[in-house]
Simulated assay, not measured.
Amino acid sequence: MAVITIAFVSRSVSELRLARADFQKTQTEYLLAGAHNVALLAIATSSRAPPYRWTVPSLGKAFDVAAEPERPKMALSNAPSLDDDTLDRLGVTDHDALRARLSSLPNVEGLPWAADADSSKNWKACAGALISFYGAASFAPALGYVEPDAGKDDSKWRAGEVWRISVTDEDGWRDERIVRFTGNGLNPAAVISRRLTRGWKDNLACETLLAAG
């Protein structure tokens, strides 16, 4: 009887821990989504040239936001031609293996996440700022982030533009989305693809990492 009781209690404790973990994750997703909503309005009404990087306060917490339009980025089909110096700066140790993985990524809207092509934390943090399925450039863009001046231009709401918006909380949880702006102020953007990850807090900005030495 004692053994059965112990087993029952252990199972109950495990279920409670799982329930708490699920609740915390749900709460985190809710907070990140709130920060995304704030960021969307800032991006859609800013008159400054992107890309943007700034801190968004939401529900008593601070969130790091990075946002870039996708079209100026390196086209996915050109990604295998990234130069060795850039790959070194992003911590990639096997250039040939990375290029092979990039070449094999499916060229499908909303996919893939080029950041998953290598395990380096620097590559994972910054690849999405350089490469895109929606990109039209032959070369990776030079990164120079500024803070958006929200509310300065709401005439177009960036209708039709595709952007990558990454929101990271203080614990390293990141809600990364590819969105298309609708031109509708009540519903500024539609989500094309989204993922939730946890890892590097991105304290080192990618433009600093990639700056010429």
Rank of each mutant, 00 (worst) to 15 (best):
S104R: 13
S155D: 10
A35W: 05
K201C: 05
A7R: 00
L186P: 07
L40E: 08
T182H: 09
T86S: 10
A150T: 05
S132T: 06
G172N: 10
Y30W: 01
D169F: 02
V56Q: 15
A114N: 05
N122H: 15
S119G: 08
D175M: 12
C206V: 08
G60T: 10
F133T: 05
G135I: 02
L105Q: 11
L41I: 08
P80D: 01
A2H: 06
G199W: 07
E161Y: 05
L18M: 12
I178L: 15
R177P: 01
A75Q: 08
T93L: 07
A19W: 01
T45P: 04
P112C: 14
R48F: 11
S155V: 09
R177D: 01
D171V: 06
D96E: 15
L90T: 03
W200L: 09
A42M: 06
L32I: 09
A49W: 13
Y52L: 07
R180Q: 12
W173T: 06
K201S: 10
V108H: 05
E176Y: 05
F8I: 08
Y30V: 05
P141A: 08
A67W: 03
P141M: 07
A67L: 02
G185W: 11
T197V: 07
V108Y: 03
V3T: 13
R101H: 09
S103Q: 12
W123M: 11
A115H: 05
A100Y: 00
H36K: 04
T28P: 03
A66Q: 03
F23M: 04
T86H: 01
R198I: 14
L59Y: 10
E170R: 13
L87V: 01
P80R: 00
V65R: 00
R20N: 09
G34R: 02
A117P: 07
D175I: 02
L90K: 04
